[in-house]
Structures are given as C-alpha cells and as structure tokens.
Design a protein around this nucleic acid. Structure first.
Lengths: 143, 143
DNA sequence: CAGCATCCCGACTGATACTG
DNA sequence: CAGTATCAGTCGGGATGCTG
C-alpha cells in the first residue's frame, strides 16, 4: 500500500531511466556489494528485527525463527563489518551484547520495507504464476 | 507500518510456528519469496538490464559481465516462472528468443533502482567500514 | 543463436560440543 | 549469555561438450 508505484509501461519501450551505473565502467557498479548483504535472507531478517530497536544476541535468535546460532553470529558480524550494525559489549557478569542499526543500516530499512510491501502485494500473483508455469511445464525442475 | 512487528513470539512449547500472515507483522510473511528472487544478484542484474527494454539471450549474457550461460538460463527461467519476465520465441532460422519484463516485473524495477541507488550512495562508506573492521580485527575471516 | 546435460569443486549451513 | 571450534552434508555455480 505504501508502495506508490507509478505506472510504468510494461515491456515495450519502458527503460525510462534506470541507470544505476551510467557506464559499463564498473561491471556491476557496486550493486553486488549490497546484494550480497541484502539478498541474504538472514541479514534481512536481522535488519527487520533490529529496525524495532536494539536487541541482544539471544533476543535476535529467538525472534528469528529457524536461524542457527552460527548463522546469527556470522550474519551480525558481516553486518557489523559493513557498518550497518553496531555491536556493543557490556562487561557485565554474564556477558551482554547488544546490536543496533547504525544510521546507514537504518536507511536500509526503508528499502527492506518497500521490498516487503511489494512482496505482500505480489505474493499471490507470483504464486499463481508459478503454479501456472509448473502445470504448463511438467517435469521441469527449476526450483 | 507494515514492518512494525511487536517482536518476539517465542512461545515455549511447540505452538504455532507458521503465522497466518494476515498481517504483515511476521517478517517471514512473503519477504523471503521476494528475496529469494530479488536477492539473487543475477536476477537483479537481469531485471536491471531488461528495464532498458527487451533483450535477447546473448544480449543479456554480453551485458551482464561474468554471468555464465548456465546461470543466465536458470535466472531467466525462474523469473519467467514467477511471472516477472516474459519469454518469447521466434521460430526464425537461427532460433531467436527475447525476454522482457512483465508489468509485475516492471514494478519491481523501482525497488531495484532504489536498491542500486542506495548501493551507490553507500558503496564507499561500506568499503571504508570494511577496511576499518578488518584492520581492527586482524586475522578475522568473515568472508 | 539459444539452450540442455554433466562433471565437479568449494562455499554455505546446520548440528554439536566446548569456553569465557 | 554470547560466543568459538569442528565436522559433515548440501548445493550453487563454473567449465565443458552437445542439440535444434
């Protein structure tokens, strides 16, 4: 809903002005850097969770269904390394650490939100398209 | 508002782990469906390329630096299956196929563009953060 | 040109056990 | 609680060779 999508002419001429990298200079103009981070399902879920406020390690693990401790560790490390998440250690008796989004990380939440909105909006359509495709192409394992 | 979730649904015992998805509360609600598609670097690059207009297979492969034929095939197939891309075969002598975004696919273009913009905007910062992190944490192989 | 079929290696991940 | 260390299994994805 909050996704205002101005009608874009489908297929035909389209191509209005999507010019992420004006030049073939850089093959992928940094898109991949982000994608490798944003595209990771765990990263996104962590970001979404942290968008609600600071969380501790266990809180994140409990909030994110299905993530292993190992993956959570790796995920927050990577996000920290990229400067999207700030990790703070409190030298309390039982060690305590909290994670929160940095400003950069917070700015990503808008995109994630937009992505989620788009997802919800087209979820059904995609599911239908898949069924349709699968029935039209039996025995085609495209995952 | 869509992403505002109350956080935590620990639930002691088994309980329901699959939320009805009535509300966009649950992060898992369709986000992954999109992410599995959008999050894929090749998918995004294909979408970006197709945003400029219809392309043939070889055109795509040449435009997208580094993609293997196998990955391009799989990528466009998946996009087609999800109804984001339309595949048209022209029974010419040397087979000719073109791909173009469907309306749904075109609507994704905005998000992809946003992602690309964000990427460009924060590219340098992320790179710096990484260097900084790496020098502060020597011998830490986080990918 | 536009694919499909195979082989194959290394990275990603989960499960498990141990530490500060 | 908040991790680190290890090991094993899966699979993404590149390289190569072959149709239509």
């Amino acid at each position: 809903m909050s996704l205002t999508h101005t009608g874009v002419t489908p297929g035909t001429a389209g191509a209005a002005e999507l010019e992420p990298c004006g030049q073939p200079d850089h093959p992928d103009c940094g898109i991949r850097d982000v994608l490798d981070r944003v595209g990771d399902k765990w990263s996104v879920l962590v970001i979404v969770e942290l968008a609600h406020g600071p969380r501790r390690f266990r809180q994140l693990q409990r909030a994110i269904d299905g993530i292993s401790q190992r993956m959570l560790t790796l995920t927050v490390r990577r996000l920290e390394r990229d400067g999207l998440v700030l990790r703070t250690v409190y030298p309390t008796v039982p060690a305590q650490v909290d994670y929160r989004l940095t400003e950069t990380g917070a700015s990503l939440t808008h995109l994630v939100k937009a992505l989620a909105d788009w997802s919800l909006e087209h979820r059904a359509g995609i599911a239908r398209a898949r069924e349709s495709y699968d029935s039209d192409h039996p025995g085609n394992e495209i995952r």
